[in-house]
Every structure is written in structure tokens, then in C-alpha cells.
Amino acid sequence: MKEIFVVALLIGAVSYFASDIVFNRRYGFVKYSGIELYIVGVLFSFVTDKNIISSLHIFVIVALTFIGFSFGIQFDRNTVKRITFKELSFAFLFSLTFFVIYLLLGLLGFNDNREVLSMILSMPSVSFLFAIGEKRFSVVSSEISIVFVLLFGSFLKFGFSTLVVFLLSPVFAFVLFFFEKALNKEEMNIILFALLLIESSLSASLGFDPLLSSWLFGFVFALLSNSQVFIKSFDALERPLFLSLLFFIGANFGSGFYELPKLLSLILPALVKPAFGGLLFHSNPLLFLPIGAMGIAVAAESNSSKIMTFTVISYFMFLFLSEVFRRKFLK
């Protein structure tokens, strides 16, 4: 298994470097989309056993906790202090509105996993908004709205057991904080890595949302301490983790393919977000087209090939559209 995995990763790396040359600077967003890793994943799905692919799920759970934690530590004390009531209430309304809309739309034809689909579709792409120089209000509100969507989804999926996460995750943050003064940066990274491994396995086996629990871990730690120590390390990890998720989603291509026409019909309701988003934020509606990294993470967490295939195809499609209209976005 490992040999195929290594070969596939190498093909991915080579195709990534090739894409670096092919796309050059003319197609910035497409270049960073990670499409080559997805394609390698799809090819991998044809040459390997389904059991092997499903055994990769544990690595995905670990990657998700890293992504969740990395998102959580961005809400440090200074950032939280600067969040206005307007941004908070806006984010709440934005996330609730779209989450409910998509939940209701989901009832029309996609009863299975409708809460996951609602989560994915109602999450904005923060990095995209940031990259095109959108105003602070939109960026911050979008970040907070992702947290609300995670909360809504988690309560809907796991019910009140979600509350246990609010007790468990801070324990990890306190453990990390306890050793902060005694250890240096490298050593703290080791402790964090170990704690995230433990947290990922506990969340997965106890039936909690790994993304939400690790976000909470990162958030509580950022409030307690100087999280800047970790932000740099996580910056370096962010892209490899994202690329691994795309590879995993590609590897789960199989059954999702046959449902593709039905799934693609969901793209129409997905357009609700840009329409309403434009009205709410008084911005170009196309800004709210792309599905972001967190949407991809939620899709990977679902472990449903249908959801994953739909999400990633929408992600590439919206990204491509955004690329076409890119000149319009740049101010």
C-alpha cells in the first residue's frame, strides 16, 4: 500500500511543480487550487483497493484537527478584542440564514447528509476574500460565520453531546498553556502535535466533530497565551494539509461519479449565497462564489464520496469562474 501511496504522492509533487510552470502567474487562483493533487487522487482511486482508501480516513481526521486548531489560534486576544458587535451579529445572521436556507433546500432532494451540505455551502472562502483585498468587515464576518456554521452543523449532527466538546477541548488548551513557560518553541510544537493526535482520535471515536473540537482547542489556547508562536509553524503546514485533503477526496472519487449529474444540480441553489451575500454585504456577488478550504475540510470529514466529489467539483468550478472574472474583483 505504502509503495502506491508514495508513487501517487510523487506524481502529485511532480504535477504540482509542472503546474507551477504551466500556469505561471497568469492564473493565480487556479495555480493554487491544488487541482493536480485531486487528479492524482482520482487516478489513485482507480488503481487501489477501497479498504486502503478508507484506511486513510484516520490521517484525514488528524489533518482536520490541525486545520481546526490553526483556524482557532487566529482568534487571539487582540483579534477578539477588535471584533465589533456589528461584525458578530452580521456573521451570526449570515451563517444562520444560509444554513437554514440550504437545510430547507436540501429537504427537496438530498435528505442524506443535508446538514453537511448546508455547512459546506454556507461557508464563505475567507482566504479568497482576503486575497482579493476585500474590506476587513467582510473578511472578519466571514471568519466568524464559519465558526457559527461549525456550531450549527455540530449541534444538528451530534446533538447535545457537542456540549462535551466544550468541556474536553479547553482541557487540551490548559495542558498546552501549563507547559508554555517551561518549554521552547520546538518543544511546544512536539507537545502540540501529540495533543492534536490524541484529540483527533478521541473526537473520532467518541463521535464529536474534530473540526469544532480542535477549533475550540486553538481558540481557548489563543485566549490564554501567545499563540503567535504557533502561527508561523502552522502557516508552513497549511498547504500540505490542504493538498492532502484534496488527494484524499480525489481517492474517494469512485461512487461519487455516478451521482454527479444529480449533485451538480445543487450548484443552482449554491448560487443563492452570492445573490444574498452581495445584497447583505453590498459587494460584488461573485465574491461569495468560491467554496473555501473549510468547506473542503467539512466535506472530507463527512467521508461521503458523493459530498466530497460535489464539493471539490464546485470548488474548482467556482474558482475557475472567479478566475475569469478576476479583473473585476481587483481594486
Binding site: 518543544e187 501529540a194 490524541i198
Partner: peptide, 26 residues
């Protein structure tokens, strides 16, 4: 107490192995 399944036990054991080993090393 938790009786984790084999998949999750790998990440769980590795996490604790790192913590225990790290502090013993220190």
C-alpha cells in the same frame, strides 16, 4: 476505559507515546 478501535488507537497511542517519551527525555 475507552476501548478505541484499531484505527483510532494508532493516533491515540502515538500521541501519548510522544508525550511520555518527551517528558522522560526532559
Amino acid at each position: 476505559y475507552l476501548q478505541l478501535n484499531s484505527f483510532y488507537l494508532i493516533a491515540f497511542s502515538l500521541g501519548f507515546l510522544i508525550l511520555i517519551s518527551f517528558f522522560t527525555g526532559k
